[in-house]
Computed example of a mutant assay.
Amino acid sequence: MANSTAQAKRTKPERPEGFPLFPHANGQWARKKHGKFYYYGPWDDPEAALKRLEDEEAGRSHDHLTLKELFDRFLTAKHSRVVSGELTLPTYRDYLTVLQHVASFFGKHRPADELTADDFRQLRDSFARSHGPVRLQKDIVVTRMPFRWAYESGLLEHSVRFGPDFKPPSRRARLKATRAYGRKDFSAKEIKAILAAASQPLRAMILLGINAGLGQSDIANLQRRHVDLQAGWLEYPRPKTEIERRCPLWPETVAALQESLQTRPKPKGDADADCVFLTSHGRRYLRMTEKSRTDTITPSFRRLLNSLGIKDRRNFYSLRHTFETQAGESRDQVAVDLIMGHADHSMAANYRHRISDDRLRDVVAVVRTWLWPDTRKPATPPEGDDQNM
C-alpha cells in the first residue's frame, strides 16, 4: 500500500478578504455554525461555494442529492433487509460506521454528484491513517456501495467516478499486515492454562470455543434448544450466515455446561429467557443495536489472558482460529467446514447431502487429542436426569 505521506499535499488557498468561508483541511470551503461544520465546495471553485452559501441563506434549493440524503436512503433500504432477516445487524452497523465517516469527511450537505477522484483519494488517505490494509479494504468497498445503489435506483444520473487511487490495498499489503499482526491461535499449553484459570461460566464458553469453534456472538446467542447434553451434540446455525452447523461435544464441555447452567442467573426479559449464558444482570453477554454494541465476553477473556501473562493481540476469537488450525489435521476439511459453519461453494457441495457423525467425531477427537494427548477417544457423556437442556 502506498504511503499517503509520499503524496504531495495541497497547500490551502488564501482566504479572500471579506469571504464568509474558510478553507477546510478536507479540501472544501466551509463555515462553522452552532458548533458544526458545513461545506460548500472544493477550494478551486470559491465562486461556486459562495453561490451555494447565498442560495442556502436565501432558501433556494438545488436539485442535487446530498450525501446525507443519499446515505439515509441507502441505510433505510438496508435496514429493511435487517428486519426481513436478509442482512445481519453487525453488517448494517459496519455500513453505518463507514458512511458516518464519509459524511463527516466531505460534509453531509455536499452534493453526491460533485465528488471527484481527488476527493476520494483524500478520503482513502483519511481511512489509511487509522486503519490497516484489511480494514481499509472494507472501508473502500462499503463507501462505493451507496453510490452504485443510487445510480441503479435512478437517484444519480451518472455513475460516480472514484478514480484510479480509490482502490483496496493489494493482496501483498494485506498479507504483510496479517503477518505483522502476529499469531492468532493458541498453543495446547496456553489453552490448558487458560482453562485452569477460568471460572464459570467463562470456562464453559472457552471449551465451546476450542471444541466447536464458537465465537463471542455464537456464545451470546446460544439457546438451550441448540444443545443436547444427553447425546452430547451441538446443532446451531451460525448467526452470521444461518449456515447449518453440527458438532459433537467433548465430555469436558458437557460437564462445564451442566455446571454453568446450575448457577445461571434469571433472565431479565423474555428475549433472553432461552439463552444458555446470561450475565449477572440476566442479559445476554453480547447485545447489539443499530448504534451500539455491548460485549462482556471480550474484556473478561482479556483480563484472564493478562493474568496469565498473555498480553499480545490474541482474543476470544483466537479460539476459533485454534480450532480450525488443529481440526485441519484431521484431513477432512468438508467435516471441519460443517462444524465451523463455513460456506462451501464447490460443485461437490451441490451433490453432497449429508456428512456422517463419525466424520464429525473424528474431527473433534483430533483437536481433543492435541489438547490432551493422553486421551484418544472421547468418553461417553455422563448420564443423569439434568442433562437435557
Rank of each mutant, 00 (worst) to 15 (best):
S4W: 06
T5M: 01
Q7E: 04
T11F: 00
P16I: 08
G18W: 00
G27A: 06
W29M: 01
K33S: 07
Y40W: 03
W43Y: 13
D45Q: 15
A49L: 03
L53C: 02
D55H: 11
E56M: 01
R60E: 05
D63L: 08
R73F: 05
A77W: 05
A77E: 14
R81H: 10
G85A: 04
T88D: 00
Y95A: 02
V98S: 01
F105Y: 12
P111R: 04
D113N: 14
L115K: 12
R129A: 15
P146G: 02
F147N: 00
R148Y: 07
W149S: 06
Y151E: 04
G154V: 11
S159Q: 11
V160D: 00
P164W: 04
P168E: 05
R171D: 02
L175S: 11
E190R: 04
A196S: 10
A204F: 01
L208H: 07
L208Q: 09
A220Y: 04
Q223S: 13
R224H: 14
R225P: 01
A231H: 13
A231S: 15
G232I: 02
W233P: 02
P239Y: 08
L257G: 04
L257Q: 07
E259A: 15
K266S: 12
K268A: 15
G269I: 04
Y285T: 13
L286E: 10
L286I: 12
R293N: 12
R293I: 05
T298K: 10
L304N: 08
L305M: 15
G309E: 11
I310F: 12
K311T: 15
D312A: 10
R313I: 05
R314K: 13
S318P: 13
T322L: 00
T322H: 06
F323V: 03
F323K: 02
A327V: 05
A327Y: 04
G328K: 13
E329L: 15
R331Y: 11
D332Y: 03
A335Q: 02
L338Y: 00
L338H: 06
A348K: 08
R361M: 09
T369C: 00
T369M: 01
P382I: 13
E383G: 10
D385A: 14
Q387F: 09
N388V: 04
